[in-house]
Structures are given as structure tokens and as C-alpha cells.
Amino acid sequence: MFGVLFEQTADGQRYVDWLLSGLGWTLALAFFGWWIAFAVGVVVGIGRTVQNRLVAALARLYVEIFRNIPVLVQMFLWYFVLPEILPTSLGDSIKQIPPPWGSFFPALLCLGLYTAARIAEQVRAGIEALPKGQTEAASALGLGGYLTYRHIIVPQALRLIVPSLTSEVMGIYKNTSVALTIGLMELTAQARQISEATFQTFTAFGAATLIYLALALIAYQSMMLIDRAVRIPGSTPAKDAIEPALADDVQPGAALHQGMEVVK
């Protein structure tokens, strides 16, 4: 059934090479996007919990903006709108970036910053779930705000949210497919191209589906391993917390709905 994938294309490659190249872009987008999301998400999530009103308000603003605009719209904003609103010379030089990178970087920023907003909320929830006694004990020892966050609060909050971060990891790589709308030839785009070239729609998208599923499984298993690796000795496993993460499907549209729950 997948035999057609190994046939020669017009440019001398095989269709499976197209898929692999798409997979490469998908992975690159998800991987680097994840680290942007994680770094920004942790900072913004911490920002939401600090005493300083201005910082907390800015962090809140970030989250509400990036989480409540659909990913597809954000993709267009970064790709089409950003070069227009920047000073002309800068905008023009952005438009000059050669093809794969010209859509890769906007897609990377888009997914990274969107997912960061979601991670920020997880981080905030993790921080707020810690018993008040932890901060009090740290204060009583003379640890200031920075040291308390650095050594007491953040290490515990991050451990707590590993299960819910699993759904964010899966979410970001699924959302990479949105990048095809701005011309990045990632996995889904390549599948469509193969389907158009061969008229084997089922084979093309079937192969893409299997690859996405395999990625999901790998992401899920790695997060389970991480969860186990960072678990505090003597504490009870948080296995029941990781199961709903699988069921929680991260769709661009769902973000709006979830955002409204928190806004109320």
C-alpha cells in the first residue's frame, strides 16, 4: 500500500524523501519552538505570581493575548502583518529572507510564543498549588524573593506540572501543521504535495498520520521518563495526573474556550 512512496518523483527523489524532509521541518519547528515556549513560559508564569503589580499585569496581558488568538491567526500576523508594521527597511529585509527560512522563523516564533502562554498558565498553577508553608519556611530562613523562587518554588512547581506539560509538548508538534498555511513544507504540506502528485490521497495522509502518532507516543513516553526521573523520593507517583493529559487535545480553536474559563 505504501509502495508508491518509494517511486521516483519528477525531480529524481522518492516520495518518501519528501515526507522525511517534511518530518525534519516538523521536528525542527517543534523542538526549537518548545525551548522558546518553555523559557518564555517559565518566566511569564513566574511573573504572574510575583508581588510587583506591574510585572504581574504585564505577564497576565501576555498570556491573555497569546493564548486567546487562534494559532492560525497568529501565524498570519507574524508572517504577513509583522513585516508591514515594522519600519519599511526592516520589513523589506524580512520579506527578503529566502524560502524555507522566510516561513520557518515566523512559524517558530508563532508556535513558541503561543505555547509559552499556555505553559505560563501551567507554571502559575503549579506555583499556586504549593503549600504556603514553603514560602514561609524559606522567608523564615532569610532567603529573599529571588532565592526562594530559584531554589524552593520553581523546582517544586516544575516537577508538579510535568504531567500537564506532556499535553503541551504534544500540542506544539501537532500545531506545527498550521505552518503549512504560510508555506513551510512540513509534514502535512508534504503529504498534500504527494497526494496531489500521485492521486494516492489515502497513502499520503495515512503515512503522515502514522508518523504523527509515532511522534505522540515518543513524546508521551519521554515525558513519563522525565516525570519518573525528577520524582522526589518518597513522594507518591502522580500517574493519575498524567492520564488526562493524553485526552486533552490541544487544538487551535480549543484555546479560546479554555482561555475564557480562566478569564471569568
Binding site: P131, Q134, A137, L143
Partner: peptide, 19 residues
């Protein structure tokens, strides 16, 4: 924090750092 570091405190619920 300078003052607090001279004052030790023990809580009812221990409040050890679990990690």
C-alpha cells in the same frame, strides 16, 4: 532577611523542602 536569618522558626507542619 538579615533579621530573619537571626530568628529561627519551627512550624507546626514542619515545612521541610520536599525536593
Amino acid at each position: 532577611n538579615g533579621v530573619r536569618s537571626e530568628v529561627g522558626m519551627v512550624f507546626q507542619s514542619f515545612n521541610l523542602f520536599p525536593h
